[in-house]
Design a protein around this nucleic acid. Sequence first.
DNA 1: AACTTTTTCAACCGCGCAGGA
DNA 2: ATCCTGCGCGGTTGAAAAAGT
Length: 300
Amino acid sequence: MKPRGGGGEQPAVRKGPWTAEEDEVLLRHVREHGPRDWSSIRSKGLLPRTGKSCRLRWVNKLRPDLKTGCKFSAEEERVVIDLQAQIGNKWARIATYLPGRTDNDVKNFWSTRQKRLARLLRAPVPRRRPGKQSGSASSSHAHELPTQKNLCLDMIPFQGTTTPAHHTGESSSHDHDSRAASQHRPGDAPFPGAHGLPPPPVPLLTHAGAGRGSPSSAAPTAPALLPPYDGDYYARDAVAGVDPLVCPEPLAVVPPGTFFGLDDDYVHAGRVLHPEASGVRFDDLPPETFDFFELPHLPP
DNA sequence: AACTTTTTCAACCGCGCAGGA
DNA sequence: ATCCTGCGCGGTTGAAAAAGT
């Protein structure tokens, strides 16, 4: 560990956005040594960045197998939602089922949706400006609901940073157990935090690009998002030419799940989903969909 | 067009585990 | 057996971009 209190030899740690030059240095390091020895990058004076920062940069931005600029597909959304319900906020774990996605991606995706959902549920949904919507339409949404499918907020995996049901008994969302459970390592038993859950939904995703380089590595526990460095990332990618991960073909296997915990009827109640539109995404839904959350009899 | 709000995303932080000295 | 170091993870923050008014 670096000398506490900031030893003299090493340049001050730089923080903030990475420059192209820094990226280049980092890439060169990975090319030569593989994605490891992060700390040596600073100790050798290659970059004034902490090892931690270097690793993060590599994992989240520079890794060659990342999908960049692609929004989460409907399938990916379902995977995240399903897995989050099963194992909680184990983003790194969930990310292993989503080739080309990082734990940060998954985390951001989830928190964005949680925020939006929270806003929609908590604050009264702002009505369309009076007059902008021809009168009755908006105000009548709630009344048009099929009468009482009582909305249960528990159905919605809402408390994003807390836990799914099986965690909620814990004293804190950040306690030792959950923390320890999250410290899985390659080779760990799958889903250590998933008490009583079935084994991981074996390769939820099958993907042309997934598992490249490791033909038999479709191990349920490690769907080989990023196989261990084999010294040949770059050569392999160069040969591959087009990265199949950039615009993957549809991901398979995920059983159609509920929409944020709402069953189809609710969704239908919002008159948004066609019964066959199982692939619809949160984003696709107009705000009116959630108007009925304003119902005064919502449970506290 | 200007302003405000919301969303997205990159990056940092603290914690805890694993492994080596 | 203990300490130290490196690494990985989950949570959080803040700036930029996009969308809405």
